[in-house]
């Protein structure tokens, strides 16, 4: 794992270059697919989209199909790379765990001021659930899209039942994909999640944020080292008292966890909050 704490800069490396490339390849090609896919409906001319500068091609079904195909090469290859690469490396951080549904409801309540967040691993429980949902949606889109492409190129007289399945699966999962994308955008707009935006843009999040919100993850990284470093650099001190709240919650929350891993986190989190507390004083 490329995950690393850089104390002098107050950062934690959350994603390596490969992950960033995967994410943005899928995201950007996915958006191109949504757009060109919509232009596969006879709507661009009807709704004057063709008159928008740069979108004159949107009314030509052959051109929009070429764009759709080209974008899907990136989308399909990146998606399968993701599954194979991380599958072989044994990365399991985004696989949903037992109790994720219950915890994610608690987390969502906490966004609206009800209750406190539990301490997090690298990913939030709803991120793991959303990931599983997105994997399913993308898998269905790719599968049905490949059937449709094969029909277009080689087998226009394929069994009608197969064609209808592929078409309607593609159309329905297109709608689900757009809804999932909007939920993804809504999640990053929520204030507590915003620090993660930096993670997916630069690969790193602030150490301060990670320590307070993802103590279990920080503990994992520190546990992976032979000689765990003790205290946090003063540069990483809490700048916003608002983020201190979850840290206390995480400390208590982690204490309730029976696993050894969580116990390490408890230590890390409480030493963190002690540190920052002293500095404040």
């Amino acid at each position: 794992m490329a995950e690393k704490i850089i104390r002098e800069k107050g950062r934690v490396i959350r994603h390596d270059v490969v992950e960033l490339v995967e994410h943005w390849a899928i995201a950007l090609s996915g958006l191109a697919l949504v757009l060109s896919g919509m232009f596969e409906m006879p709507m661009a001319s009807r709704y004057y989209i063709t008159s928008v500068p740069g979108l004159a091609w949107s009314g030509d079904f052959i051109v929009s199909l070429s764009v759709h195909y080209a974008a899907s090469i990136v989308f399909v290859a990146a998606s399968l790379f993701h599954v194979v690469y991380h599958g072989m490396r044994g990365d399991r951080g985004m696989i949903p765990q037992k109790g994720d549904l219950r915890t994610s409801i608690e987390v969502m309540k906490s966004f609206f001021g009800k209750g406190k967040e539990p301490p997090f691993h690298k990913y939030l429980p709803e991120q793991r659930l959303a990931y599983a949902g997105m994997v399913f949606i993308i898998a269905m889109l790719i599968l049905s899209g490949l059937v449709k492409t094969f029909k277009n190129v080689y087998a226009p007289d394929m069994a009608y039942a197969a064609v209808l399945w592929a078409t309607w699966t593609h159309n329905i999962f297109f709608v689900l994909f757009v809804l999932a994308f909007m939920a993804h955008m809504a999640a990053i707009v929520l204030k507590p999640n915003r620090p993660m935006l930096r993670g997916i843009l630069t690969g790193a999040v602030s150490l301060d944020y990670a320590v307070h919100r993802h103590p279990l993850w920080i503990a994992e990284i520190e546990g992976a080292k032979e000689k765990p470093t003790q205290a946090v650099d003063p540069a990483a001190e809490a700048k916003d008292s608002a983020v201190e709240e979850p840290a206390k919650a995480s400390a208590t929350g982690a204490a309730e966890e029976p696993s050894g891993e969580a116990a390490v986190a408890d230590e890390a989190a409480s030493s963190e909050s002690d540190e920052t507390g002293k500095d404040k004083v």
Binding site: Y69, S72, I73, V76, A77, A78, S79, L80, F81, V84, I142, G145, L146, T149, F150, V153
Partner: peptide
């Protein structure tokens, strides 16, 4: 090329 993309990704 789209049909070859899965093999490429894998």
């Amino acid at each position: 090329a789209v049909l070859a993309a899965p093999a490429l990704g894998i």
